[in-house]
Amino acid sequence: MILGFVFAALSSIGSWYYSDKAALAAYRAQPIDRAQAPEIYDMVARLCDRAELPMPKVFVVPTKSPNAFATGRDPEHAAVAVTEGIMELLTPQELEGVLAHELTHVKNRDTLTQAVAGTLAGAITYLGRILTFGALYGPVTTNGRRGTNPIGLIFLIVLAPLSAALIQFAISRTREFAADQGSAEITGNPLALASALEKLEAIGQQIPMNGNPAMSPLLIINPLSAEGLQTLFRTHPPTADRIRRLMELAQQRPLTTAKA
């Protein structure tokens, strides 16, 4: 169990520490400065000022698929990336809502949260494999049988790793809801993000985001659709649920932004 935890922790810590480099390389993101894209750069700077965050590095992903993501081990080493497609598709208010969502991930240190969840899931999976090996090849009983319990084996081989993965996905979905709310608080305009998500869900299915599927939890919209029981394995909540919650926020008392 200790070995499983150590191996899982080393893997997750490595993924967390180099998360920015790995994700940006996976999507071939290109760095930009204010001279290259003043509108998007100034928008990020303005939102960072409201959220009281340091200015992250800004990247553009050369694809027509509309999406965005944030990564980095902490706010001081963060990066925000948007695709060419999302800049063409969304209005300035909608794009501001998306960027505020991503900056909330940075502020909440969600990359670290996912690393911890990945460590626990990996440790449980590794422990299940070790115990399965012991059950299959362990000491023989006095009556000449190994005493393997088929129900126990099913739990060790399938249910334990599956449960760990489901918990990890559930944490990821919770963080998405929190980032949506954070966007509403930063911008004071939850309907802008709701409108953006509606557009992204419709167009994103038509123009898939190419890249490593392991990086899909970072994206604001999961490029893989799922229905029914498959939603349990999604890293993102259903977009309809996210839009509904944002509309409920809009109907509540007016939100106040951190700074004008």
Rank of each mutant, 00 (worst) to 15 (best):
T174G: 14
I221K: 14
K107P: 10
D33G: 13
A170Q: 08
A121P: 11
A184N: 03
G122Q: 09
V60H: 12
A70W: 00
V61L: 01
T235H: 11
L159C: 06
L159R: 08
A9H: 11
L156N: 13
T148E: 10
Y18I: 07
A70F: 01
F133N: 12
F69C: 12
H236Y: 04
R46N: 08
Y126G: 13
V106M: 08
P139Y: 03
M87V: 08
Q36I: 06
P161R: 07
S19T: 02
Q36H: 03
T91K: 12
V6A: 12
V61D: 04
L95E: 09
I203M: 04
P66N: 09
G147R: 09
Y41N: 08
A202V: 12
G152C: 02
H77G: 04
A226P: 09
A100C: 10
N143S: 06
W16K: 06
D74T: 15
T256N: 07
L197Y: 01
A160D: 07
T256V: 05
V58L: 12
E76H: 12
A35D: 15
V60Q: 10
G138M: 09
R146M: 06
A179D: 06
M55K: 14
T231C: 07
G128I: 05
G72Y: 00
Y18K: 06
F69K: 11
L224W: 07
Y18G: 06
R46Y: 01
A214T: 12
G211H: 13
I203D: 03
N222Q: 13
L136M: 14
L89Q: 11
R50F: 00
R245Q: 01
D33T: 13
M1L: 01
G138Y: 09
R28L: 02
L232E: 13
L162C: 05
A214K: 11
T235Q: 09
T111A: 02
S163F: 04
P66Y: 00
G134F: 04
A164R: 09
N67P: 01
G97C: 05
G14D: 03
K107W: 00
Q206G: 00
R245N: 06
M87Q: 14
L103C: 15
G122E: 05
A194W: 01
P208Q: 10
A179L: 02
A23S: 08
A51C: 06
S163N: 13
I86Y: 01
A79Q: 10
